[in-house]
């Protein structure tokens, strides 16, 4: 066998090793990804979907919609703030409670995304209210949901009159 032939054989072998390691690593990573995904995927529902799909207690998910006007109230118990408000998509609405300080961008009439689950009384207990900030001050899932429920066109006309000019 010539020297070049030897070299080519070694090269083939090396390529094979590399390929096998790559496949092994990719396979392991894929396994890892899939098992990790199971626990950390959060589904997103708007109030209408909660009613339609009859979401009960025990399932963690993200709720999004508009904070209903004049629905927000909070009281303080021993230094801890307990907040109540209603999230609506113009079609259905859900009562929410949250313990703790709300993010700055939380306002009545504005979009909100909260993570948590339903309790026995049909109230959404939020473990976290997401401090989303965004050029239009509106999370995208909420925009999509509102568009679907027909609430968006009304809102858009109020908040961004200039966009129409061009």
């Amino acid at each position: 066998m010539t020297k070049i032939g030897l070299k080519a054989g070694a090269r083939k072998k090396r390529r094979l090793y590399f390929l096998l390691t790559s496949i092994a690593v990719l396979g392991l990573a894929a396994l890892l990804v899939l098992s990790a995904l199971e626990d950390s995927i959060r589904l997103f529902y708007d109030p209408t979907e909660i009613v339609e799909k009859n979401i009960g207690p025990g399932q963690n998910f993200r709720l999004g919609g508009l904070v209903e006007e004049e629905s927000f109230e909070s009281r303080e118990v021993a230094g801890i703030l307990i907040n109540h408000f209603v999230v609506t998509d113009g079609n259905e609405s859900v009562a929410v409670t949250y313990e703790g300080l709300l993010p700055d961008l939380f306002r009545e009439g504005q979009g909100v995304v909260a993570e948590g689950s339903m309790n026995e009384d049909g109230v959404f207990v939020a473990s976290e209210v997401l401090a989303k900030h965004d050029e239009t001050y509106m999370p995208k899932e909420v925009v999509d949901s509102l568009k679907k429920r027909g609430e968006w066109q009304r809102k858009a006309a109020e908040t961004h009159p200039q966009d129409k000019a061009l």
Partner: peptide, 12 residues
């Protein structure tokens, strides 16, 4: 509609 949270990335 769903989101993949930080726990996923942190773990992996």
């Amino acid at each position: 509609k769903s989101s993949v949270g930080a726990p996923f990335f942190n773990l992996v």
